[in-house]
């Protein structure tokens, strides 16, 4: 009896290992791209606007007096956000080609869009496919989040004041997904959905930086909401630093 017990114990100890292996079949295992920081490179640059800066357009929120009341000063719809020197902000820059077949880990943090002052903040941002997209309403009014993708699934959700944040995901790459509020026609935002973490939105000085890139040959695309897209090819050697300049032409 005693022997039998020992045998059973041993048997179960032996079988526990192969069982564990079965539980995680290797076929579905995702291999994540590991970027070696000792040889990774950087692409940085500036986006310029060459043309007459259009006059700033004031946003009229009178349609919803509750929204208008939230602002003491005029709100401007800067669809071409160029400064006096021609540096262009709010341009979405990302790696369009060169990383195919590589899987990148998802950041745990959500990308957040806030509805504040009856305005989407930020206007332009990027997100990885599958990453959490969080939408917050911090206004005293009801908003309505309505992405108008061409590739991803379209949805429309009402979000009243004080409601819990919405958590969504975009499953497919798409540059850009336009987001609107059906209730407040002036509210617009764009989300660039990419399969890699190499994206940026140009700063007020028109600058961008894509860091920690594996060495390779890339197509970089710059997207501007009114002026369209431009691309450039660039080779990043091990530990290389490349600088690009994009120039969008106006009238």
């Amino acid at each position: 009896m005693r022997q039998l017990l020992v045998a059973v114990f041993l048997l179960s100890a032996c079988t526990s290992n192969p069982e564990k292996k079965l539980a995680t079949p290797s076929t579905t295992e995702i291999v994540y791209a590991e970027v070696d920081p000792t040889i990774s490179g950087i692409i940085s640059g500036t986006v310029m606007f060459n043309g007459k800066t259009p006059p700033r357009k004031k946003v009229d929120m009178d349609e919803d007096p509750q929204c208008a009341k939230l602002h003491k000063q005029a709100v401007y719809n800067d669809s071409i956000a160029a400064n006096g020197k021609g540096n262009l902000a709010n341009v979405f820059v990302y790696v369009k080609h060169g990383l195919e077949g590589k899987n990148f880990r998802l950041p745990a943090d959500a990308v957040t869009m806030v509805q504040k002052g009856c305005w989407f903040e930020p206007r332009i941002q990027g997100i990885q496919t599958g990453q959490k997209f969080q939408v917050i309403n911090s206004d005293p009014v009801t908003h309505n989040v309505h992405p108008r993708p061409k590739i991803n699934r379209e949805w429309n959700q009402s979000q009243e004041s004080g409601a819990v944040p919405l958590i969504r995901r975009f499953s497919k790459p798409e540059v850009m997904v336009r987001v609107k509020c059906n209730i407040h026609g002036w509210m617009k935002a764009w989300v660039g959905v990419v399969e890699n973490p190499y994206y940026a939105v140009t700063t007020a000085d028109g600058n961008f930086e894509l860091k920690n890139l594996p060495p390779g040959k890339y197509t970089i695309e710059a997207w501007q909401e009114e002026l369209g897209v431009q691309e450039q090819e660039v080779v990043v050697p091990p530990s290389g630093k490349q600088t690009l300049q994009f120039t969008f032409k106006g009238e």
Binding site: H146, S158, I183
Partner: peptide, 19 residues
């Protein structure tokens, strides 16, 4: 009871509800 005022209700319908 999620909508507090009649304005909220009208805004909700203007938005087309939730898909």
């Amino acid at each position: 009871g999620r909508q507090k005022t009649l304005k909220d209700v009208v805004d909700f319908y203007v938005g087309g509800g939730t898909s």
